[in-house]
Computed example of a mutant assay.
Amino acid sequence: MRTAITGITRNAKFARLATVGGTAVGTAAIAVSALSGTAHAAEGAAKPADKPVSVQTAATTAQHVDAQAAKAAKAHKADKAGAKGYADNLDGWIREARAIMKKHHIPGSYEGIKKNIIRESAGDPNAMNGWDVNAKKGTPSKGLLQVIQPTFDQYHVKGTADKLTDPVANIVAACNYAADRYGSMDKVNSAY
Results as ranks from 00 to 15, higher is better:
114 K>H: 07
114 K>V: 02
114 K>G: 03
114 K>C: 01
114 K>Y: 07
114 K>T: 07
115 K>L: 07
115 K>H: 07
116 N>V: 04
117 I>Y: 12
118 I>T: 05
118 I>P: 09
118 I>L: 11
119 R>A: 10
120 E>G: 01
120 E>N: 10
121 S>N: 09
121 S>I: 09
122 A>K: 15
122 A>I: 09
122 A>N: 13
122 A>M: 12
123 G>P: 14
123 G>A: 15
123 G>V: 13
123 G>W: 13
123 G>E: 13
123 G>M: 15
124 D>Q: 11
125 P>I: 08
126 N>T: 15
127 A>Q: 06
127 A>M: 09
127 A>T: 08
128 M>T: 08
128 M>R: 09
128 M>Q: 12
129 N>D: 03
129 N>F: 01
131 W>Q: 14
133 V>C: 07
133 V>T: 14
133 V>M: 12
134 N>S: 15
137 K>E: 13
137 K>S: 15
137 K>A: 14
138 G>Y: 05
138 G>W: 08
138 G>M: 09
139 T>H: 10
139 T>A: 08
139 T>P: 00
139 T>L: 02
139 T>F: 12
139 T>Q: 09
140 P>H: 05
140 P>T: 03
140 P>M: 04
140 P>D: 02
140 P>Q: 01
141 S>V: 00
141 S>I: 07
141 S>D: 03
141 S>H: 04
142 K>W: 02
142 K>Y: 04
143 G>Q: 00
